[in-house]
Amino acid sequence: MSKDYIRPMPKRWWTTRPGWAKFMLREWTALPVAIYCGVLIAMAAAARSEASWQGFCDWLETPLSMILHVIVLAFALLHTVTWFAAAPKAIRVFRGDEQVPEALVAGGHFAAWVVVSAGFALLVVGL
C-alpha cells in the first residue's frame, strides 16, 4: 500500500475542467456585485445635497459608469440565474408520494423574480 502513487492536484486546478471553471466564474460573480454596493453607498451619500446629487447623476452618464453597469449587470444576471437554477437542489418539494420536478421548483423562482422585478419597475416608472 505504501507504494501507492499519489497524483496531486495542479495549482490552477480550476482551469483543467470546464465544470470547475464555471464554478469559479460563479464564485467570482460575487465580486462585481460587492463593488456595486460601493456605487449604492455613493448614491446614498450624494443624496444629502442638491449639488452632490447632480454630480452623482453626471457621473452616471460617463462612459466609465456605463461600462461598469453593463459588466455588473451581466455578472448579477449570471449570479441570479445560476442561483435559481441551483435552488431545487436544496429544496426538495413533495406532493403526495412524488417529488415535484426540479424544473418546476426552479421555474417558480424565476416566475417570482419576474413578478418582483415587474413590481419594482412599475414603482419606479410610476414615481
Partner: peptide, 25 residues
C-alpha cells in the same frame, strides 16, 4: 462549495450535490 460536478458525472442520477445541499438546509 457546491461545484455540482458530482451530480453531472453520476451515471445513476443520484444527485449527490442535491443531497448535500439538502443536508445543509
Amino acid at each position: 462549495t457546491f461545484v455540482g460536478e458530482c451530480s453531472r458525472v453520476c451515471p445513476k442520477n443520484v444527485d449527490p450535490a442535491g443531497a448535500i445541499q439538502a443536508g445543509k438546509v
